[in-house]
Design a protein around this nucleic acid. Structure first.
Lengths: 397, 397
DNA sequence: GGTAATTTGTTGGCTAAGCAAACATATTAG
DNA sequence: CTAATATGTTTGCTTAGCCAACAAATTACC
């Protein structure tokens, strides 16, 4: 059993796994493209016309997709019906933070249906977070007309999350240690709840619907108020590691301090590259990402310019190392790292070039994150959609 | 077509791909285990008895495996025939180095059949390397009795290799730049030739037949005379990156020097952690790995102890970063890095613990590489075996 | 405006391949 | 020597994708 895994065989590969794979392929395509003609499904999957017709029919029967009249502006030939995710299929997304808990309702098309942000006076305990989230979920649920199919709840958690069971091993900013958040919310709501690290979910969201569409190998780094998180997509799949902790770029050592002077700080990326320091040199307190970016771009202060370059130097080291190790096609920068990139992307690129192998650097490009504030909602919902996308016939159980 | 890829669908998933997958699963298991009863194939694959019988029969017919009498010491019940790789199925492995070119003949069971090391006065040009390799291959070929099935040639190359076409982008120690080595050897021998970075092939070999058996996420680092190479296995698959350059840990920045004093060296791992420096403090010139290790362990010199710790400090930083980013289950150290680990593994572990997140470190262990000098031969041959393992029915073309 | 070309949907029969069940066989247990 | 057990072997069943023929809906073009 363990050995079967080691050959790379996931499930049974008996005859009916073919059906499962094909249903999954079709549903996944519809999910990602949001709208698609049946004929393009045929070309994209490489399956026979008649087979695709049968697959789509089954998905319609299961209430996962809807088929509608062909679009008018078509080419020569018989028009092909349009296939879209059934709007009744939804997932909840939950994102607890220091100052708020956000709950969203996301459709199978990857679009936000509803979004509720509950502001907080102080950082919530696990019990509070679960209580508030389940209450909001209950409210939204009460508004359903009965036809909705909720596939589950995905949680974007700011910390180390063991993805097997959604236990938060450590969320320093929330002060959570070894908290079975997913399990608690599951008990409170009755839905299946899956948790994941916020930045890793963001990486996946950017790959599916943002700057990384169609890219199979990318590195995503996000700069937030509480530090730097990241995620890696390898060959189209989010990198997990053994227990789901992969992608912690924030703790990469980027200076020799620790090795040199024992008294110094650890010299990790997220100690050197911080939003707070940018705000300080800009003489601002707290700002939303756009505001920060405008101020950075507008600033003519030498102090600001120097600080930006200092931070870009360190970011360049971390990215250079990442490029050497992972040889990605794309590096996506989100949060205030995106702002830094906007301010002086060329300088950052020159630094990455300096610290990475020419061949690896040559195959790479950089981009800002495209998804805005919905990114974590979409990423979290993706967790909840995953089972049904992988196995549309039995994904519910 | 590109999009089909982005859904994670490799080939066609029509009905006969099931057969391909199952044949591949069986042959891969036989390849890895070397010897296996048919009944254990049934349990390991999860397929039906009769299906496995048919699959094995087809593989026998194609000359890829042999079935033999059941082993005598069996349990209750009808004994099950033993399935093994057909010994006639072989691959050539080629490893050009500064001072020698090694050619090996490796069986489908992953064992060395023959090995020829051709010593050189000076570093070979590409033409020389290809010439020598193809001549040795010709000689070995001449000794075949005609029944041998050569699936191809795998090359372990000390440098950056674009794995799509086996072009060496840069092999600093050999002085090769943008050399289509694989193509040249293919033309010279008529066999299909595939090339890969030596350390990455080593990582795969260790995973299949060495310290990493059964492990799905591992990081491998090898220390050689010419630097430090590495490879990463993610979820059971070697990490490639876009063009196959992933795993270049040697160039990881482990000091802040470059950012601090522009005059200093780059401060990369392989500039700080070197075999030459160990040899220098040991007052040795050139030594085989075992000799170096014995000397290191035996030495009581303070200078040696200090240098070992200095190198372990840097190695600890690089590994700590790697652990944070990749969250591996196992770190395997080969070459003189294995020797360093033997000398003071506990110190290295303490350093890795210091630079990595506790949760990620807790899930990890370290080990020495197990495969000796055959590692590159086995890893390279694996490249040649890959097509036939993936598609036993048509892997030849 | 009518016919041809084109593309796609629909239907019915075919085939590949895994599965299940019944039976056969070779071993150990006692 | 018989029972228990595990596995090989054989036969027919079922699933599901494919193909080919035909139908339908659109554009192209005279």
């Amino acid at each position: 059993m363990m050995m079967a895994e080691s050959v790379g065989l996931r499930r049974s590969r008996n005859a009916d796994s073919v059906r499962r794979r094909n249903l999954s392929a079709v549903l996944t395509l519809v999910h990602r493209k949001r709208s698609l003609s049946r004929s393009s499904l045929t070309t994209l999957t490489g399956l026979n016309r008649s087979t695709v017709a049968a697959l789509v029919a089954e998905l319609v029967l299961r209430g996962l997709v809807v088929e509608s009249e062909p679009s008018t502006n078509s080419r020569v030939g018989r028009p092909s019906p349009v296939v879209q995710p059934d709007p009744r299929v939804v997932a909840f997304a939950v994102n607890p933070e220091i100052d708020a808990i956000t709950v969203g309702l996301v459709g199978l098309s990857g679009t936000m249906v509803k979004r509720v942000r509950h502001e907080l006076e102080r950082s919530p305990t696990v019990t509070e977070a679960v209580g508030i989230a389940s209450e909001i979920i209950g409210q939204i649920r009460a508004g359903f007309d009965g036809s909705a199919l909720v596939v589950g709840v995905g949680m974007a958690l700011p910390g180390l999350v063991r993805d097997r069971d959604g236990v938060v091993r450590l969320a320093p900013h929330l002060g959570w240690v070894d908290e079975p958040v997913a399990g608690l919310l599951e008990a409170a709501t009755g839905y299946r709840v899956v948790g994941g690290n916020d930045a890793r979910l963001g990486a996946n969201a950017e790959r599916l619907f943002g700057a990384g569409r169609g890219v199979r190998d990318l590195v995503y780094l996000n700069g937030g108020a509480s530090g730097i998180g990241g995620g890696v997509i390898v060959d189209g799949t989010p990198l997990r590691g053994v227990e789901g902790y992969a992608g912690e770029f924030g703790h990469t050592l980027v200076t020799g301090r620790s090795a040199r002077d024992a008294a110094g700080s650890r010299g990790s990326l997220e100690l050197e590259v911080t939003r707070d320091e940018l705000l300080r040199v800009l003489r601002m307190n707290g700002a939303d990402p756009d505001e920060l970016e405008r101020a950075l771009v507008a600033s003519t202060s030498a102090e600001v310019r120097i600080e930006v370059r200092r931070q870009l130097d360190f970011l360049g080291i971390a990215l250079g190392n990442a490029v050497n190790i992972l040889n990605p096609e794309l590096v996506v920068l989100g949060g205030f790292l995106g702002a830094l990139f906007s301010v002086d992307g060329e300088y950052l690129e020159s630094k990455v070039a300096e610290y990475s192998l020419p061949a690896a650097y040559a195959g790479m490009r950089m981009a800002r994150a495209q998804l805005g504030s919905d990114i974590l909602m979409i990423g979290a919902a993706e967790l909840a959609f995953a089972p049904i996308l992988a196995d549309p016939a039995n994904g519910g159980e």
